[in-house]
Design a protein around this nucleic acid. Structure first.
Length: 563
RNA sequence: GCGCCCGUAGCUCAACUGGACAGAGCAUCAGACUUCGGAUCUGAGGGUUGGGGGUUCAAAUCCCUCCGGGCGCGCCA
């Protein structure tokens, strides 16, 4: 939509520049956007206002000159005018919309090709395998998942990766916690450490270990035993995490283990790389990375005075490893509580000679669970968060995903469990799914009336029959899909797609209530079937990109879907 | 104390990154099918965009300041 007008306008501006001897070089990129008020048309452009300042001419005069030079040979515009301080306002002709709808119906790609096969990586979830996923992790995971889906849809070669922190102190603490619970099984009174993992799942795992190995480890309280329990716990918990995610529709292309990274020596390799560039120094027996040289608040330790490597060093090595694999873009999806971590990692990339812009970090704020408006208490002290699994079991994967995506990621999310379960118009996910199912139902009706609905997409459709303003609006909304996807990807903001789908569904429901698709007029019926078929197509595609099912029937959580 | 994020209708949030009279949903009130699914639709009320200053043709958006909320600031992970 924008691109068609942009071409016309660019030509007009070039011509104007020649005629008026204005300097093209000062011209900012053309901004076209739908005005808030409908009276101003479909798209507005502020170029005259911006240009005016640099050229020291009145904006309206410039706007007039541009308009005079506008040649709409194909008649795509119905109206072009000047308003207010010098905005150029444009409305497309119905003919233009009919053509776009025709392209759509003929199977034109729904998404623009922005990626052109470029390799990008999305790393997300990456939760330490020291416990089950909670709701906050679920939001991070879904946002990462949908970003990956969106990037793939616009032609990037996407890899989805999970980084497993399976080395270091936390794993040791897990191992120790498990081992202590294990000894407890056999009647021993233990003093559970303050910084251990207190969750019930630890006891459960310990009990499993007891069943499997009996008293074997009771007499062997060695480091090797702790290490064994660490590994045992880590593997089991990672498996549980993967199974929770998979029940939530989320899978990965690769898992990168920190332990392996260390074993391969990649972590230590980064030390000379940094020190050769003068980015490391010694202080009080430890080695520090000069991250302040690249804007971080303070320098960061990479090797502790006891010789242990920090997680930060592993992370540097890991991100170097990513870039060496040839990704042109790295996207990390993190909980917002890690935001302080971004500058040091970018600093490290800079220090290694990479462009820090290659890395984009999407921060995801936390989730407040409520039930009918009342907050759901989470006893953080007992280490008992509400798990992702519980939420998905209660409200279903579709609703949970949709709700997690309904807000901009850097704002807090209120998630009401009661609302998510409701099967009514209050529940946004049902509202959108219902629009899809309703269209399916129209086609079922048409089929029963003996109409050849399978051919409706291609043959002998008089789109000009769609003369109602509501129909033009609906076409407009449908073809806007590509732009919404583009914005969602560019800004890495999947919530834009969610809002779009809600609007499209709303527009369809209103249309449905006002007009009958199937009528006595065969030509009109066909044209309207074509229109709603394409509404349905876009809704289905949009829901799929969100990982939400598009049901053909809404009856009692139907499993029936179109893929 | 320092840094980052947030503050928009009673509630939950949008606003295409500086554009024209700030928009939705929920809630409230009043309405709509003997025909395609009422899980829907129509209408009404509701705002000094936390306060104050500034930048400019134009500010919810950018800058300063204050208020309020969240998070982060370790040789933790």
């Amino acid at each position: 939509m924008k691109s068609h007008l942009r071409d016309l306008l660019t030509q007009a501006i070039e011509k104007t520049a020649k005629g008026e001897e204005l300097k093209m070089t000062d011209l900012p990129p053309l901004l076209l956007e739908p005005p808030k008020q409908k009276e101003f048309g479909d798209l507005a452009c502020n170029v005259a206002l911006i240009w005016a300042k640099q050229q020291r001419k009145p904006p309206r005069a410039i706007a007039e000159a541009i308009l005079k030079n506008l040649e709409d040979r194909d008649g795509i515009l119905a109206r072009a005018g000047i308003a207010g301080p010098g905005f150029l306002n444009f409305s497309f002709s119905p003919k233009f919309y009919y053509q776009r709808l025709g392209e759509f119906a003929a199977g034109k790609e729904l998404e623009p090709n922005l990626g052109r096969g470029e390799k990008v990586q999305v790393e997300f979830a990456s939760v330490n395998p020291t416990g089950p996923l909670h709701v906050g992790h679920g939001r991070v995971a879904v946002i990462g998942d949908v970003l990956a889906r969106l990037l793939g849809a616009v032609g990037f070669d996407v890899e989805r990766e999970y980084y497993v922190n399976d080395a270091g102190n936390q794993m040791e603490k897990l191992g120790l916690s498990l081992y202590l619970r294990y000894r407890e099984l056999y009647g021993e009174k233990i003093a559970f450490p303050e910084d251990g993992y207190p969750g019930e799942y630890v006891k459960k795992l310990a009990a499993d270990a007891g069943r499997q190995w009996g008293e074997k480890f009771l007499s062997e309280a060695s480091d090797a035993t702790i290490a064994f329990f660490s590994q045992y716990g880590g593997e089991n918990l990672l498996a549980a995490i993967r199974s929770d995610l998979s029940a939530f529709g989320i899978t990965f292309d690769s898992f990168v283990s920190e332990k392996n990274l260390r074993a391969r020596g990649e972590v230590e390799e980064t030390i000379p790389l940094l020190s050769d560039r003068g980015m490391l120094y010694e202080q009080e027996g430890a080695r520090w990375f000069r991250s302040t040289a690249y804007g971080d608040d303070k320098d960061r330790t990479v090797i502790k005075s006891n010789g242990e490597l920090t997680y930060f060093l592993s992370d540097i090595a890991y991100h170097r490893n990513k870039l060496e694999r040839g990704f042109k873009k790295l996207i990390n999806v993190w909980g917002a509580d890690h935001h302080g971590y971004v500058p040091r990692l970018k600093a490290a990339l800079s220090a290694l000679g990479y462009d820090p812009q290659l890395l984009q970090v999407v921060l995801v704020q936390m989730v407040h669970l409520t039930r009918g408006g009342e907050p759901v208490r989470m006893g953080k002290r007992q280490g008992e968060f509400v798990s992702l699994r519980e939420v998905v079991d209660e409200v279903g994967a579709d609703a949970a995903r949709f709700f997690f995506l309904m807000r901009k990621s850097d704002s807090h999310l209120d998630f009401d469990l009661e609302l998510a379960k409701k099967e009514s118009s209050e529940n946004p996910v049902f509202y959108v799914q219902y629009a899809h199912a309703r269209i399916a139902s129209i086609f079922e009706q048409a089929r029963q009336a003996g109409l050849e609905v399978d051919d409706v997409i291609m043959r002998d459709i008089k789109v000009e029959c769609l003369a109602q303003p509501e129909e033009i609006e609906l076409i407009k909304r449908v073809i806007q899909f590509a732009e919404v996807i583009e914005e969602s990807v560019k800004e890495l903001e999947p919530h834009r797609l969610v809002f779009y789908l809600l609007e499209l569904a709303g527009e369809f429901h209103r249309y449905y209530n006002r007009f009958r698709v199937i009528s006595d007029d065969p030509a009109l019926t066909k044209a309207r079937l074509l229109l709603v078929r394409n509404v349905q197509k876009v809704i289905r595609r949009g829901l799929n990109l969100l990982g939400v099912t598009a049901p053909l029937k809404m009856a009692a959580r139907s499993e029936e879907t179109m893929s």
